[in-house]
Amino acid sequence: MNTLLLETKGLSKTYIMGQINVHALRDVDITVNNGEFIAVMGASGSGKTTFMNLLGCLDKPTEGSYWLDEVEVHKMSSEQLTVIRNEKIGFVFQSFYLLPRTSALENVELPLLYSKKSSAQERKAKAMQALEIVGIADRSTHFPNQLSGGQQQRVAIARAIVNDPSFILADEPTGNLDTRTSIEVMAVFQQLHRQGKTVVLVTHEQEIARYANRHITFRDGRIISDIINENPADARVDLKNLPLEED
């Protein structure tokens, strides 16, 4: 369980805006092991999303190094990063980012389409399986606009896990959801974590961070605290204790 997943050294990102340099991330050193469930926290503008984008190979650092599964990611071309994203990383975004007018099943199939390995049948089976894991298999033919926010986020999570990635990155996945739905989604993440998945999740709500096993806090682009949460809350229990929504 304690094998190394990723490591960053002096990871920095500077945006050049005309005359001003915005140091969105400064000298971030971090190691993440397989099987961790991390909540990344911090005030707005502290660099959480920037950090996620770098971990997710969506963007390249200005300086510093990043090893993922013992591969030197910071030296890779954007084409190589595309393959890494496809094979090793699953993304969940705040506003779901599902393709419109495309069924839930087809949305989940998307990462498989861009990897060479599988046949149409295998793709379908895998996507269906992912939808079952997040508990929304009965909505597989629905379009995103026919699903509630929580359901859409489940579909997005299914898409993130369908290619069996090394880790899941979620940027404020509950940002657009109400309390109950947020806890439901967190229950899904906890379930994935129990099944051995690594999850890195950005949030600025303490309520949400409670479910993670490790808390990393950013301020002004630096990590100001990195602590282990010995007693993470159980979302399933919270759901049971939650009074039924009055509507």
Binding site: V83, R85, E87
Partner: peptide, 13 residues
């Protein structure tokens, strides 16, 4: 946005 999503999940240039 669609292009961005496709690229994020593994579509190359």
């Amino acid at each position: 946005k669609e292009i961005g999503i496709r690229m994020a999940v593994g579509a190359g240039k």
